[in-house]
Amino acid sequence: MPGTLKNYYEILGVPRSATTDQIRTAYRKLLLKFHPDKNVGDTYFEEWSKKINEAFEVLKDPEARAEYDLVYDDARAASKQTATVNKNDPGNTPPVETTHPLSIDATIQKLAPVYVSAKQAYIKSARNVEAIENRLKMKRMNAAIHFLLGGVMILAILVWVALTNKNLFQAVSSPDPPVADRATIIPLPALVKREATMAGNQTGFETVDLWLKVVTTKAYFFEQPEGAVLDDKFLSKGNKVHAIKKAGNYYFSVFQSAVNNSYKIEGWVKAADVEILAQ
């Protein structure tokens, strides 16, 4: 097509006298700069990549190059002749667009470095912004991890303190029960057992050596079997006493607190309020 044939030498930026090696070198340099894989989605780079490939496919082959040169020279000569006729004939209206396509390609090629520089600056700025955002994201993530680790550490310390001071927390959180409710039985001295045995032999009471467990809500102590209660003294359910005498349905029992050595109860308890523990 006369007047519209592309100037492949201008596209590759080489003179018409360039050798095949020079053409190949120029092609490789331009392809590295305009390859669409480096600028995905940019139509400008895609179009220039197509033009560079098209020019190289023609100029790398000597036969195709020679044919192209011949056709290009004819097209250029025809274009110049048409322009001269139009200029000499006043009746001919000049075309609206008089700029030759070859000059358009040349202009684009001149502007290409500016566009490429701007594009590379944009890509660099975008990468810097992305790097800054990644650093901020990492800082936020590190802060969250440190906060979580701090919470776990505080929780572990609280659990450790609770376990090591379990008795202290129980004493603070619950009111003190009566001494009889939280006391444990300690074995009676051998002297007390001997005295009880002697008293049993003298009075006719049956001498025993039993451990009893309170099974009712309250087990009261009496002065004598079926006698009066000893100042409302009692043991709550679950406590244990040591019985040394028995008279009918009553046991003479001794309770000695292991928590408070000064707390001691002696008296008769009903057999119905206790049960004998295995020896």
Score class of each variant (00 low, 15 high):
residue 258 A to N: 08
residue 262 S to D: 10
residue 52 I to L: 11
residue 93 T to N: 07
residue 68 Y to T: 03
residue 23 I to M: 08
residue 57 E to R: 10
residue 114 V to H: 06
residue 173 S to L: 13
residue 198 M to F: 04
residue 17 S to I: 00
residue 220 Y to G: 10
residue 268 W to M: 05
residue 196 A to T: 15
residue 123 I to A: 09
residue 92 N to M: 15
residue 276 I to D: 07
residue 28 R to Q: 12
residue 191 L to W: 06
residue 205 F to T: 15
residue 240 K to L: 07
residue 140 R to I: 05
residue 109 Q to K: 04
residue 218 K to I: 02
residue 168 L to H: 05
residue 188 L to D: 12
residue 69 D to K: 15
residue 175 P to M: 13
residue 34 F to A: 10
residue 264 K to G: 00
residue 148 L to M: 03
residue 74 D to H: 05
residue 181 D to G: 06
residue 89 D to A: 03
residue 49 S to R: 00
residue 196 A to S: 09
residue 259 V to R: 12
residue 152 V to W: 09
residue 135 R to M: 01
residue 17 S to V: 01
residue 193 K to Q: 12
residue 46 E to S: 07
residue 215 V to C: 00
residue 205 F to N: 09
residue 266 E to I: 11
residue 88 N to S: 05
residue 251 Y to C: 10
residue 232 D to M: 08
residue 118 A to G: 14
residue 14 V to C: 10
residue 203 T to V: 02
residue 262 S to K: 15
residue 5 L to G: 06
residue 147 F to W: 05
residue 68 Y to M: 06
residue 170 Q to W: 01
residue 125 S to Q: 11
residue 102 L to T: 13
residue 264 K to D: 10
residue 5 L to A: 03
residue 74 D to F: 13
residue 175 P to T: 07
residue 228 A to K: 09
residue 257 S to E: 06
residue 36 P to A: 04
residue 128 N to R: 06
residue 73 D to M: 07
residue 87 K to C: 00
residue 236 S to G: 12
residue 78 A to E: 07
residue 107 T to F: 04
residue 58 V to C: 02
residue 141 M to I: 11
residue 116 V to H: 11
residue 54 E to S: 14
residue 161 V to C: 12
residue 142 N to T: 06
residue 94 P to C: 01
residue 95 P to D: 09
residue 243 A to C: 03
residue 6 K to G: 02
